[in-house]
Design a protein around this nucleic acid. Sequence first.
DNA 1: GAACGAGTCTGGTCTGACCACTTAACGTTT
DNA 2: AAACGTTAAGTGGTCAGACCAGACTCGTTC
Lengths: 198, 198
Amino acid sequence: MTSKVYVEILQQLYRIIEEDGLSAGDKIPSERELAERLNAGRSSVREALRSLEFLGIIETRRGEGTYLKEFGDHQLIGLLGMFILQEKRAKEDLAETKWLIEEMCLSLACKRRTEEHVQELEQLLTKPLDYETFFQWVVKAGNNYLLERIWRVLNDFYQSQHGAISLPHMFYEQMAQSFQTRDWTTIRNIFSEYRRID
Amino acid sequence: MTSKVYVEILQQLYRIIEEDGLSAGDKIPSERELAERLNAGRSSVREALRSLEFLGIIETRRGEGTYLKEFGDHQLIGLLGMFILQEKRAKEDLAETKWLIEEMCLSLACKRRTEEHVQELEQLLTKPLDYETFFQWVVKAGNNYLLERIWRVLNDFYQSQHGAISLPHMFYEQMAQSFQTRDWTTIRNIFSEYRRID
DNA sequence: GAACGAGTCTGGTCTGACCACTTAACGTTT
DNA sequence: AAACGTTAAGTGGTCAGACCAGACTCGTTC
Protein backbone atom coordinates (compact mmCIF):
# COMPACT_ATOMS: atom_id res chain seq x y z
CA MET A 1 0.00 0.00 0.00
CA THR A 2 2.11 2.87 -1.19
CA SER A 3 -0.75 5.22 -2.06
CA LYS A 4 -2.73 6.80 0.66
CA VAL A 5 -6.33 5.86 1.19
CA TYR A 6 -7.68 9.35 0.94
CA VAL A 7 -6.17 9.72 -2.51
CA GLU A 8 -7.80 6.48 -3.58
CA ILE A 9 -11.06 7.75 -2.21
CA LEU A 10 -10.81 10.92 -4.26
CA GLN A 11 -10.42 8.86 -7.42
CA GLN A 12 -13.20 6.49 -6.51
CA LEU A 13 -15.36 9.46 -5.72
CA TYR A 14 -14.89 10.77 -9.24
CA ARG A 15 -15.92 7.40 -10.58
CA ILE A 16 -19.04 7.39 -8.44
CA ILE A 17 -19.92 10.90 -9.52
CA GLU A 18 -19.58 9.90 -13.15
CA GLU A 19 -21.40 6.59 -12.83
CA ASP A 20 -24.28 8.11 -10.95
CA GLY A 21 -24.36 11.04 -13.34
CA LEU A 22 -24.16 13.60 -10.58
CA SER A 23 -23.74 17.27 -11.39
CA ALA A 24 -23.64 20.58 -9.59
CA GLY A 25 -26.15 20.83 -6.79
CA ASP A 26 -26.66 17.10 -6.51
CA LYS A 27 -26.20 15.26 -3.25
CA ILE A 28 -23.39 12.75 -2.95
CA PRO A 29 -23.63 9.63 -0.78
CA SER A 30 -23.25 10.10 2.95
CA GLU A 31 -19.90 9.65 4.65
CA ARG A 32 -20.98 6.41 6.23
CA GLU A 33 -22.24 5.01 2.96
CA LEU A 34 -19.06 6.01 1.14
CA ALA A 35 -16.95 4.39 3.81
CA GLU A 36 -18.87 1.18 3.41
CA ARG A 37 -18.92 1.20 -0.40
CA LEU A 38 -15.21 1.92 -0.58
CA ASN A 39 -14.14 -0.35 2.25
CA ALA A 40 -12.55 2.48 4.15
CA GLY A 41 -12.88 4.11 7.51
CA ARG A 42 -15.14 7.06 7.86
CA SER A 43 -12.24 9.23 8.99
CA SER A 44 -10.40 8.52 5.77
CA VAL A 45 -13.47 9.45 3.78
CA ARG A 46 -13.71 12.64 5.74
CA GLU A 47 -10.09 13.54 5.04
CA ALA A 48 -10.80 13.28 1.34
CA LEU A 49 -14.01 15.28 1.60
CA ARG A 50 -12.31 18.00 3.65
CA SER A 51 -9.81 18.53 0.86
CA LEU A 52 -12.59 18.91 -1.68
CA GLU A 53 -14.54 21.20 0.61
CA PHE A 54 -11.48 23.35 1.13
CA LEU A 55 -11.22 23.80 -2.60
CA GLY A 56 -14.89 24.68 -2.81
CA ILE A 57 -15.75 21.66 -4.92
CA ILE A 58 -18.25 20.30 -2.45
CA GLU A 59 -20.36 21.80 0.28
CA THR A 60 -21.25 20.04 3.50
CA ARG A 61 -24.34 20.88 5.49
CA ARG A 62 -24.67 19.34 8.90
CA GLY A 63 -27.77 17.26 9.24
CA GLU A 64 -28.46 17.40 5.52
CA GLY A 65 -25.59 15.97 3.56
CA THR A 66 -22.81 16.79 1.14
CA TYR A 67 -23.47 18.47 -2.17
CA LEU A 68 -21.53 19.11 -5.33
CA LYS A 69 -20.91 22.77 -5.86
CA GLU A 70 -20.98 24.70 -9.09
CA PHE A 71 -17.48 24.87 -10.42
CA GLY A 72 -16.12 28.19 -11.56
CA ASP A 73 -17.29 29.94 -8.46
CA HIS A 74 -15.00 32.11 -6.50
CA GLN A 75 -13.40 29.51 -4.26
CA LEU A 76 -10.88 28.03 -6.65
CA ILE A 77 -10.33 31.29 -8.42
CA GLY A 78 -9.72 33.01 -5.14
CA LEU A 79 -7.33 30.36 -3.97
CA LEU A 80 -5.42 30.57 -7.19
CA GLY A 81 -5.16 34.28 -6.85
CA MET A 82 -4.00 33.89 -3.31
CA PHE A 83 -1.28 31.35 -3.96
CA ILE A 84 -0.20 31.06 -7.57
CA LEU A 85 -0.41 34.65 -8.60
CA GLN A 86 1.67 35.67 -5.63
CA GLU A 87 4.52 34.21 -7.54
CA LYS A 88 6.19 37.13 -9.12
CA ARG A 89 6.99 35.35 -12.33
CA ALA A 90 3.40 34.32 -12.95
CA LYS A 91 2.15 37.79 -12.23
CA GLU A 92 4.54 39.37 -14.65
CA ASP A 93 3.42 37.08 -17.42
CA LEU A 94 -0.27 37.51 -16.77
CA ALA A 95 -0.86 40.42 -19.12
CA GLU A 96 1.12 38.91 -21.95
CA THR A 97 -0.47 35.51 -21.63
CA LYS A 98 -3.93 36.98 -21.53
CA TRP A 99 -3.22 38.95 -24.66
CA LEU A 100 -1.83 35.94 -26.50
CA ILE A 101 -4.80 33.82 -25.57
CA GLU A 102 -7.14 36.54 -26.67
CA GLU A 103 -5.45 36.83 -30.03
CA MET A 104 -5.77 33.08 -30.35
CA CYS A 105 -9.47 33.27 -29.60
CA LEU A 106 -9.94 36.04 -32.12
CA SER A 107 -8.32 33.85 -34.76
CA LEU A 108 -10.61 30.94 -33.98
CA ALA A 109 -13.67 33.16 -33.92
CA CYS A 110 -12.73 34.65 -37.26
CA LYS A 111 -12.66 31.20 -38.81
CA ARG A 112 -15.70 29.76 -37.15
CA ARG A 113 -18.16 32.56 -36.59
CA THR A 114 -21.54 31.82 -38.15
CA GLU A 115 -24.14 34.21 -39.50
CA GLU A 116 -25.95 33.96 -36.19
CA HIS A 117 -22.82 35.01 -34.36
CA VAL A 118 -22.42 38.07 -36.55
CA GLN A 119 -26.01 39.05 -36.01
CA GLU A 120 -25.63 38.63 -32.29
CA LEU A 121 -22.61 40.89 -32.33
CA GLU A 122 -24.56 43.49 -34.29
CA GLN A 123 -27.17 43.30 -31.60
CA LEU A 124 -24.57 43.89 -28.90
CA LEU A 125 -23.31 46.96 -30.73
CA THR A 126 -26.64 48.74 -30.39
CA LYS A 127 -25.80 49.28 -26.74
CA PRO A 128 -22.60 50.45 -25.06
CA LEU A 129 -20.24 47.51 -25.10
CA ASP A 130 -17.44 46.59 -22.72
CA TYR A 131 -14.31 44.60 -23.32
CA GLU A 132 -15.34 41.59 -21.26
CA THR A 133 -18.70 41.21 -22.92
CA PHE A 134 -17.13 41.49 -26.33
CA PHE A 135 -14.62 38.78 -25.59
CA GLN A 136 -17.27 36.55 -24.17
CA TRP A 137 -18.79 36.72 -27.59
CA VAL A 138 -15.39 36.00 -29.13
CA VAL A 139 -14.67 32.89 -27.11
CA LYS A 140 -18.16 31.65 -27.78
CA ALA A 141 -17.78 32.14 -31.51
CA GLY A 142 -14.39 30.47 -31.29
CA ASN A 143 -16.20 27.34 -30.22
CA ASN A 144 -13.48 25.96 -27.96
CA TYR A 145 -14.80 25.42 -24.49
CA LEU A 146 -11.47 24.71 -22.88
CA LEU A 147 -9.97 27.88 -24.24
CA GLU A 148 -13.02 29.71 -22.97
CA ARG A 149 -12.38 28.48 -19.45
CA ILE A 150 -8.73 29.37 -19.60
CA TRP A 151 -9.55 32.83 -20.84
CA ARG A 152 -12.11 33.36 -18.14
CA VAL A 153 -9.61 32.53 -15.41
CA LEU A 154 -6.97 34.83 -16.86
CA ASN A 155 -9.51 37.58 -17.33
CA ASP A 156 -10.71 37.35 -13.76
CA PHE A 157 -7.18 37.56 -12.45
CA TYR A 158 -6.32 40.41 -14.71
CA GLN A 159 -9.37 42.41 -13.71
CA SER A 160 -8.74 41.85 -10.03
CA GLN A 161 -5.30 43.31 -10.47
CA HIS A 162 -5.66 45.99 -13.11
CA GLY A 163 -9.37 46.66 -13.24
CA ALA A 164 -11.51 46.42 -16.34
CA ILE A 165 -10.18 47.32 -19.76
CA SER A 166 -11.97 50.19 -21.42
CA LEU A 167 -11.87 50.74 -25.16
CA PRO A 168 -13.74 53.20 -27.39
CA HIS A 169 -16.87 51.99 -29.08
CA MET A 170 -15.19 52.28 -32.42
CA PHE A 171 -12.97 49.35 -31.55
CA TYR A 172 -15.93 47.04 -31.33
CA GLU A 173 -17.48 48.43 -34.50
CA GLN A 174 -14.34 47.87 -36.48
CA MET A 175 -14.04 44.39 -35.08
CA ALA A 176 -17.62 43.55 -35.99
CA GLN A 177 -17.11 44.70 -39.53
CA SER A 178 -13.93 42.65 -39.91
CA PHE A 179 -15.60 39.59 -38.48
CA GLN A 180 -18.35 39.91 -41.02
CA THR A 181 -15.84 39.81 -43.85
CA ARG A 182 -13.60 37.32 -42.05
CA ASP A 183 -10.74 39.73 -42.46
CA TRP A 184 -8.20 38.23 -40.09
CA THR A 185 -5.42 40.61 -40.98
CA THR A 186 -7.49 43.60 -40.03
CA ILE A 187 -8.73 42.00 -36.84
CA ARG A 188 -5.18 41.37 -35.81
CA ASN A 189 -4.14 44.90 -36.63
CA ILE A 190 -7.01 46.45 -34.74
CA PHE A 191 -6.22 44.30 -31.75
CA SER A 192 -2.54 45.24 -31.77
CA GLU A 193 -3.40 48.87 -32.23
CA TYR A 194 -5.78 49.19 -29.32
CA ARG A 195 -3.69 47.02 -27.11
CA ARG A 196 -1.03 49.66 -27.35
CA ILE A 197 -3.50 52.32 -26.30
CA ASP A 198 -4.67 50.35 -23.33
CA MET B 1 -19.72 26.21 17.98
CA THR B 2 -20.67 27.57 14.60
CA SER B 3 -17.26 27.36 12.97
CA LYS B 4 -15.71 24.05 12.21
CA VAL B 5 -12.72 22.88 14.20
CA TYR B 6 -10.56 22.15 11.21
CA VAL B 7 -10.89 25.73 10.03
CA GLU B 8 -9.83 26.95 13.46
CA ILE B 9 -6.89 24.62 13.32
CA LEU B 10 -5.80 26.03 9.98
CA GLN B 11 -5.75 29.50 11.46
CA GLN B 12 -3.98 28.40 14.63
CA LEU B 13 -1.50 26.52 12.53
CA TYR B 14 -0.72 29.65 10.59
CA ARG B 15 -0.11 31.43 13.88
CA ILE B 16 2.19 28.69 15.11
CA ILE B 17 4.18 28.81 11.89
CA GLU B 18 4.62 32.54 12.27
CA GLU B 19 5.44 32.46 15.97
CA ASP B 20 7.97 29.69 15.61
CA GLY B 21 9.40 31.37 12.56
CA LEU B 22 9.06 28.29 10.39
CA SER B 23 9.82 28.46 6.70
CA ALA B 24 9.99 26.14 3.71
CA GLY B 25 11.56 22.82 4.52
CA ASP B 26 11.06 23.13 8.25
CA LYS B 27 9.27 20.51 10.26
CA ILE B 28 5.99 21.40 11.89
CA PRO B 29 4.82 19.88 15.18
CA SER B 30 3.52 16.33 15.06
CA GLU B 31 -0.17 15.60 14.74
CA ARG B 32 -0.38 14.43 18.32
CA GLU B 33 1.38 17.49 19.66
CA LEU B 34 -0.81 19.81 17.61
CA ALA B 35 -3.92 18.08 18.88
CA GLU B 36 -2.78 18.61 22.43
CA ARG B 37 -1.67 22.21 21.98
CA LEU B 38 -4.89 23.16 20.22
CA ASN B 39 -7.22 21.15 22.42
CA ALA B 40 -8.57 19.20 19.50
CA GLY B 41 -8.81 15.60 18.42
CA ARG B 42 -6.10 14.18 16.27
CA SER B 43 -8.61 13.42 13.52
CA SER B 44 -9.58 17.07 13.32
CA VAL B 45 -5.94 18.04 13.07
CA ARG B 46 -5.52 15.52 10.30
CA GLU B 47 -8.47 16.92 8.35
CA ALA B 48 -6.81 20.31 8.40
CA LEU B 49 -3.44 18.91 7.39
CA ARG B 50 -4.95 16.90 4.56
CA SER B 51 -6.37 20.06 3.04
CA LEU B 52 -2.97 21.71 3.18
CA GLU B 53 -1.30 18.64 1.77
CA PHE B 54 -3.81 18.49 -1.06
CA LEU B 55 -2.87 22.03 -1.96
CA GLY B 56 0.77 21.12 -1.79
CA ILE B 57 1.51 23.52 1.03
CA ILE B 58 2.81 20.81 3.31
CA GLU B 59 4.35 17.42 2.76
CA THR B 60 3.88 14.45 5.06
CA ARG B 61 6.41 11.67 5.34
CA ARG B 62 5.37 8.59 7.25
CA GLY B 63 7.64 7.88 10.14
CA GLU B 64 9.35 11.22 9.84
CA GLY B 65 6.91 14.06 10.19
CA THR B 66 5.22 16.90 8.35
CA TYR B 67 7.19 19.57 6.56
CA LEU B 68 6.46 22.93 5.02
CA LYS B 69 6.91 22.82 1.30
CA GLU B 70 8.60 25.33 -0.92
CA PHE B 71 6.13 28.08 -1.57
CA GLY B 72 5.52 28.00 -5.26
CA ASP B 73 5.62 24.42 -6.36
CA HIS B 74 2.22 23.50 -5.10
CA GLN B 75 -0.14 22.04 -7.61
CA LEU B 76 -3.01 24.49 -7.63
CA ILE B 77 -2.75 25.05 -11.35
CA GLY B 78 -2.73 21.33 -11.84
CA LEU B 79 -5.80 20.96 -9.70
CA LEU B 80 -7.59 23.68 -11.54
CA GLY B 81 -6.80 21.94 -14.78
CA MET B 82 -7.98 18.67 -13.39
CA PHE B 83 -11.40 19.98 -12.61
CA ILE B 84 -11.80 21.98 -15.76
CA LEU B 85 -10.67 19.09 -17.89
CA GLN B 86 -13.11 16.81 -16.17
CA GLU B 87 -15.90 18.29 -18.20
CA LYS B 88 -16.68 16.53 -21.45
CA ARG B 89 -16.72 19.63 -23.59
CA ALA B 90 -13.31 20.64 -22.31
CA LYS B 91 -11.96 17.21 -23.07
CA GLU B 92 -13.06 17.42 -26.66
CA ASP B 93 -11.15 20.64 -27.15
CA LEU B 94 -8.03 19.38 -25.45
CA ALA B 95 -6.06 18.42 -28.56
CA GLU B 96 -6.84 21.62 -30.41
CA THR B 97 -6.07 23.83 -27.46
CA LYS B 98 -2.83 22.07 -26.76
CA TRP B 99 -1.78 22.56 -30.34
CA LEU B 100 -2.69 26.25 -30.33
CA ILE B 101 -0.81 26.85 -27.11
CA GLU B 102 2.18 25.03 -28.47
CA GLU B 103 2.18 27.11 -31.60
CA MET B 104 2.02 30.18 -29.39
CA CYS B 105 4.99 28.97 -27.39
CA LEU B 106 6.94 28.27 -30.54
CA SER B 107 6.32 31.81 -31.65
CA LEU B 108 7.54 33.24 -28.38
CA ALA B 109 10.57 30.98 -28.34
CA CYS B 110 11.44 32.00 -31.88
CA LYS B 111 11.50 35.63 -30.85
CA ARG B 112 13.23 35.27 -27.53
CA ARG B 113 15.62 32.34 -27.80
CA THR B 114 19.17 33.31 -26.89
CA GLU B 115 22.43 31.85 -28.10
CA GLU B 116 22.54 29.74 -24.96
CA HIS B 117 19.12 28.32 -25.77
CA VAL B 118 20.23 27.35 -29.25
CA GLN B 119 23.33 25.68 -27.93
CA GLU B 120 21.30 23.81 -25.38
CA LEU B 121 18.99 22.55 -28.10
CA GLU B 122 22.00 21.41 -30.13
CA GLN B 123 23.11 19.50 -27.08
CA LEU B 124 19.71 17.83 -26.79
CA LEU B 125 19.89 16.76 -30.42
CA THR B 126 22.97 14.63 -29.83
CA LYS B 127 20.73 12.13 -28.10
CA PRO B 128 17.35 10.71 -29.13
CA LEU B 129 14.81 13.42 -28.38
CA ASP B 130 11.16 13.13 -27.46
CA TYR B 131 8.32 15.55 -28.00
CA GLU B 132 7.86 16.48 -24.37
CA THR B 133 11.52 17.24 -23.76
CA PHE B 134 11.65 19.34 -26.88
CA PHE B 135 8.68 21.42 -25.83
CA GLN B 136 10.05 21.86 -22.38
CA TRP B 137 12.90 23.56 -24.09
CA VAL B 138 10.45 25.60 -26.15
CA VAL B 139 8.45 26.91 -23.22
CA LYS B 140 11.65 27.72 -21.38
CA ALA B 141 13.00 29.65 -24.34
CA GLY B 142 9.63 31.37 -24.65
CA ASN B 143 10.25 32.86 -21.24
CA ASN B 144 6.66 33.04 -20.08
CA TYR B 145 6.23 31.23 -16.80
CA LEU B 146 2.45 31.29 -16.73
CA LEU B 147 2.22 29.87 -20.22
CA GLU B 148 4.67 27.19 -19.18
CA ARG B 149 2.39 26.13 -16.37
CA ILE B 150 -0.62 26.08 -18.65
CA TRP B 151 1.19 24.01 -21.26
CA ARG B 152 2.36 21.55 -18.65
CA VAL B 153 -1.19 20.92 -17.50
CA LEU B 154 -2.48 20.44 -21.01
CA ASN B 155 0.43 18.18 -21.88
CA ASP B 156 -0.02 16.01 -18.82
CA PHE B 157 -3.67 15.47 -19.56
CA TYR B 158 -3.14 14.90 -23.23
CA GLN B 159 -0.56 12.25 -22.48
CA SER B 160 -2.78 10.56 -19.95
CA GLN B 161 -5.47 10.28 -22.59
CA HIS B 162 -3.60 9.72 -25.83
CA GLY B 163 -0.14 8.65 -24.74
CA ALA B 164 3.07 10.33 -25.73
CA ILE B 165 3.52 11.92 -29.13
CA SER B 166 6.29 10.40 -31.20
CA LEU B 167 7.93 12.26 -34.06
CA PRO B 168 10.96 11.41 -36.20
CA HIS B 169 14.28 12.88 -35.22
CA MET B 170 14.28 14.96 -38.35
CA PHE B 171 11.47 17.06 -36.95
CA TYR B 172 13.63 18.25 -34.11
CA GLU B 173 16.60 18.83 -36.38
CA GLN B 174 14.58 21.00 -38.73
CA MET B 175 13.17 22.89 -35.78
CA ALA B 176 16.60 23.51 -34.32
CA GLN B 177 17.88 24.86 -37.60
CA SER B 178 14.91 27.19 -37.99
CA PHE B 179 15.28 28.43 -34.45
CA GLN B 180 18.85 29.29 -35.13
CA THR B 181 17.87 31.48 -38.05
CA ARG B 182 14.71 32.68 -36.31
CA ASP B 183 12.72 31.53 -39.30
CA TRP B 184 9.21 31.66 -37.90
CA THR B 185 7.50 30.80 -41.16
CA THR B 186 9.42 27.55 -41.46
CA ILE B 187 8.86 26.66 -37.82
CA ARG B 188 5.17 27.10 -38.31
CA ASN B 189 5.16 25.03 -41.46
CA ILE B 190 7.12 22.20 -39.91
CA PHE B 191 4.77 22.20 -36.96
CA SER B 192 1.66 22.07 -39.14
CA GLU B 193 3.22 19.37 -41.29
CA TYR B 194 4.10 16.97 -38.52
CA ARG B 195 0.95 17.65 -36.63
CA ARG B 196 -0.91 16.18 -39.57
CA ILE B 197 1.26 13.07 -39.44
CA ASP B 198 0.71 12.58 -35.75
C1' DG C 1 -55.49 21.10 8.60
C1' DA C 2 -51.96 22.67 11.98
C1' DA C 3 -48.84 21.83 15.66
C1' DC C 4 -46.16 18.90 18.27
C1' DG C 5 -42.71 15.26 19.03
C1' DA C 6 -40.18 10.83 18.72
C1' DG C 7 -37.20 8.46 15.70
C1' DT C 8 -33.78 8.54 12.19
C1' DC C 9 -30.72 10.41 9.03
C1' DT C 10 -26.77 13.58 8.32
C1' DG C 11 -22.28 15.79 9.33
C1' DG C 12 -18.85 17.16 13.45
C1' DT C 13 -15.81 15.62 16.87
C1' DC C 14 -13.18 12.91 20.05
C1' DT C 15 -10.88 8.74 21.85
C1' DG C 16 -8.24 4.79 21.67
C1' DA C 17 -6.27 1.32 19.35
C1' DC C 18 -3.36 -0.79 15.84
C1' DC C 19 -0.06 -0.73 11.79
C1' DA C 20 4.10 0.75 8.97
C1' DC C 21 7.93 3.30 8.81
C1' DT C 22 12.01 6.26 10.32
C1' DT C 23 15.25 7.63 13.44
C1' DA C 24 18.24 7.59 17.23
C1' DA C 25 20.15 5.37 21.01
C1' DC C 26 22.38 1.60 22.90
C1' DG C 27 24.84 -2.34 23.10
C1' DT C 28 27.74 -5.85 20.96
C1' DT C 29 31.11 -7.38 17.99
C1' DT C 30 35.19 -6.75 15.28
C1' DA D 1 37.88 2.98 18.15
C1' DA D 2 34.95 1.65 14.38
C1' DA D 3 31.51 -1.12 12.53
C1' DC D 4 27.53 -3.57 13.06
C1' DG D 5 22.90 -5.13 14.70
C1' DT D 6 19.03 -4.55 17.90
C1' DT D 7 15.77 -2.13 20.33
C1' DA D 8 12.77 1.57 21.67
C1' DA D 9 10.52 5.75 20.79
C1' DG D 10 8.37 8.86 17.73
C1' DT D 11 5.62 9.77 13.51
C1' DG D 12 2.12 9.49 10.04
C1' DG D 13 -1.83 6.14 8.24
C1' DT D 14 -5.97 3.90 9.29
C1' DC D 15 -9.86 2.09 11.52
C1' DA D 16 -13.80 1.34 14.75
C1' DG D 17 -16.80 3.06 17.98
C1' DA D 18 -18.95 6.44 20.55
C1' DC D 19 -21.39 10.72 21.30
C1' DC D 20 -23.14 15.41 19.91
C1' DA D 21 -25.86 18.69 17.03
C1' DG D 22 -28.68 19.93 13.32
C1' DA D 23 -32.39 18.55 9.84
C1' DC D 24 -35.81 15.66 8.10
C1' DT D 25 -39.90 12.14 8.25
C1' DC D 26 -44.02 10.82 9.74
C1' DG D 27 -47.40 9.62 12.97
C1' DT D 28 -50.01 11.57 16.89
C1' DT D 29 -52.54 15.03 18.92
C1' DC D 30 -55.09 19.24 19.17
